[in-house]
Nucleic acid binder design. Structure first.
Lengths: 332, 332
DNA sequence: TTGACATATGTCAACGTTGACATCCGCTGT
DNA sequence: ACAGCGGATGTCAACGTTGACATATGTCAA
């Protein structure tokens, strides 16, 4: 900036005024400054700007567990749409589902003085350390999974009820032995909730819970193996409930490879090709876009001054999409 | 930091020394400082730190067109794995495929003085303005698509050759009328290259090019509609080439809904469920993880001091995955 | 005993920007 | 002719941190 000022023959302050449309500047000066800016390729230094008292910058930091999961991709889309309408920039980092990287990303964002923080917490995370930030007025919203150790705004799917309804759907079609293909680690919030929903449905129908029918894996390959283990059981399940998108994909592949077209399947979270699978995949669909958009709304309302209101919890409902795979009857 | 210093009864400089393991500090002082840091929940202000002379911070900025596309999700995964091993943090922003947002994200990253910039340029982008940055030694790498208006490192798929081989595969199975379901806008680099590959294959086989056989759409729904238009043509194609992942998904759905199991299909970019589709989907697979990892390597080598080496261009080869849909013969 | 050296800490300035306040100029109305 | 005013610009300090350099205290070998 000093260079620009020297070039034009004014002080830095005047340049600053031109750049920020702040205070009166003679038209001629403005033009000469702009010309110099272009000529020198000047880029304002945001860090210096934001360093001044308490200044926050027009950026929102988001931490998600994995970039490769389309579920989170869609969540991010929902956030972006909402946040952009307000001229805010979203920057995203991925924690690879580890508490350590999550911590370090949050620290990076805090150190950069983002104006709000959005976090999809990893399984092992602990967010006590964010209480001070929240108390200081920084909007913090948790998505898809709740915070651990602190009260904060959160937006989550209706996991338990969704899973319950999916499993109840299988039961309604006559199944009594239903396998559960879940995520790992088993301590993961969404995994626990959906598992509870699974047990709710069993109990509701008076069916026994058999822990041999529960297998897990975090990615598609692991879910594939988990599903195969279930199919190879002595008293195998006649239906499977896949508790997330990768689990569903792995299970679909397992059924196809095993040539088992007689096993019913309900997935949790929709897949783009669900309807063209054979049989078409019945799922409990989440609304990841709405999760993102809603969370972003909460952030905006906090930024708009409702900073000290009590923490809110929003539940985004799921919807059962009946397509075929979940309506297969048990054999005979 | 001043607060911490006051609490302990030392100067800020000493606190700085403790925090950065810089210079000698008495063990007792170190402990008291750390205690105060914890007590006050002090977070260093990165902006102030980085403001000092030419300092760059341990962050790499990445701009991608859309977060929701699993292709880019995997690319990001490749970058993260590589970059993290070096203690660098990756922050990502999405341009929604617009030159304007891309610009603004790049400006944000530059203003934050990231230590390197990685960009998947949007169709309309112009990167002349980055020449000065590159000349000043900032590592800049373009992925998936090349820069416009400047020489810079770039990592792209073997789009043209990949598409050529995919279409040649269909021709080898007897097809003479092959539809092209492409991305939009048609000016998009990958779209142009793959289209060229399509034409290369036709020409190579002495087949005429019929522009009626070219339809496009950017997302799955648009590709679905595009594929339907091709199927409804007076002289319809006996095979389709879908030039990206969404195009392939849309086309698969279109064929399924139309009940057309006689039309051959080759997709560009692999899909997680490709093998369980009916028929299993033959694709020209890209290696998005390798694209990301390779680009990150280029960045690291620049950061390691090879800043002024000539721009490099790396081509990541594709691989034809034969699964069934591409081997269907033309009718009769 | 002395000076050379290491250890522990402090002082100061600078990074780039902008708020608060000051200055200078020309114009207006009386 | 002069006070008053608004427009255009300048001056200064401060934000939080760290590099360069200075100071103070203690240790040890000659």
């Amino acid at each position: 900036m000093a260079d620009v000022a020297r070039e034009v023959g004014v002080t830095a302050k005047t340049v600053s005024r031109v750049l920020n449309d702040d205070g009166p500047v003679a038209a001629g000066t403005r033009e000469r400054v702009m010309a110099a800016v272009r000529k020198l390729g000047y880029q304002p230094n945001l860090m210096a700007r934001n360093m001044r008292v308490g200044a926050r910058d027009a950026t929102i930091g988001l931490v998600i567990p994995e970039m490769g999961n389309p579920f989170f991709g869609t969540v991010v889309g929902g956030i972006e749409d909402t946040v952009r309408a307000r001229g805010l920039t979203l920057i995203v980092g991925s924690s690879s589902e580890t508490a350590e990287l999550e911590q370090s990303l949050i620290a990076t964002f805090l150190a950069r003085r983002v104006s709000a923080l959005m976090v999809v917490p990893s399984a092992a995370g602990d967010h006590r350390h964010l209480r001070a930030e929240r108390a200081a007025g920084l909007p913090i919203v948790f998505l898809d999974r709740p915070a651990v150790g602190m009260a904060a705004d959160q937006v989550v799917s209706g996991n338990r009820e969704g899973a319950r309804s999916g499993v109840a759907h299988l039961i309604a079609h006559g199944h009594r032995r239903i396998g559960f293909v879940g995520d790992l680690p088993a301590t993961l919030y969404t995994r626990r909730e959906r598992f509870q929903g699974y047990r709710d449905a069993l109990e509701e129908a008076g069916l026994p819970f058999d822990k041999a029918l529960v297998e897990s894996g975090h990615d598609q390959d692991a879910a594939f193996a988990a599903a195969l283990r279930l199919l190879d059981l002595p008293g195998p399940p006649t239906a499977l409930f896949a508790a997330n998108n990768f689990a569903a994909m792995g299970t679909v592949v397992a059924l196809a490879r095993a040539g088992r077209r007689d096993v019913a399947l309900v997935g949790f979270d929709d897949l783009p090709l669900a309807e063209v699978l054979d049989p078409p995949l019945t799922v409990v669909a989440q609304d990841p876009f709405a999760i993102g958009a809603t969370a972003a709304q909460l952030v905006l309302s906090r930024l708009d001054g409702h900073r000290s209101k009590a923490a809110r919890r929003v539940l985004v409902p799921t919807r059962l999409m009946v397509r075929g795979s979940g309506e297969l009857p048990p054999p005979r």
